[in-house]
């Protein structure tokens, strides 16, 4: 199983500069654990602890085949071979 994950500039320090890496997992959560095994430190940038449970960070967007994962189950979003995952930090701020 192979899932292509597009990595934003700010997280390429974890992937040795690679713009895209391959991972696998039957869910987004499993994929992130697989990424963490090969690129230690990346998980913490994607996921935070909320009431004792992992949750996606508020200002990180993850898309599976162009769908925002927040609408397809968040960390439980199912994945299959050949899916394309894109990680994009929010462009946001406030005064």
């Amino acid at each position: 199983m192979s899932i292509e994950v597009r990595i934003p500039t700010i997280l390429r320090t974890y992937t040795g500069g690679e713009k895209a890496v391959n991972g696998d997992g039957a869910s987004l959560s499993a994929l992130i654990d697989d990424l963490e095994a090969n690129h230690p430190g990346i998980k913490e940038r994607l996921v935070e602890d909320k009431n004792g449970k992992d949750d996606l960070r508020r200002f990180v967007n993850i898309y599976v085949n162009d769908e925002d994962v927040r609408f397809i189950g968040g960390l439980e979003a199912p994945l299959s071979d050949g899916d394309q995952v894109v990680v994009l930090p929010a462009v946001a701020g406030g005064c």
Binding site: N61, Y63, D66, D68, R70, V86, L88, A90, V91, A92, G93, G94, C95
Partner: peptide
């Protein structure tokens, strides 16, 4: 997407389209 005088955020769907 925040439509706010004190906060801004690109809409996540438009953000993906843009990138």
């Amino acid at each position: 997407a925040a439509g706010s005088p004190t906060f801004y955020e690109f809409d996540p769907t438009e953000l993906l389209e843009l990138y």
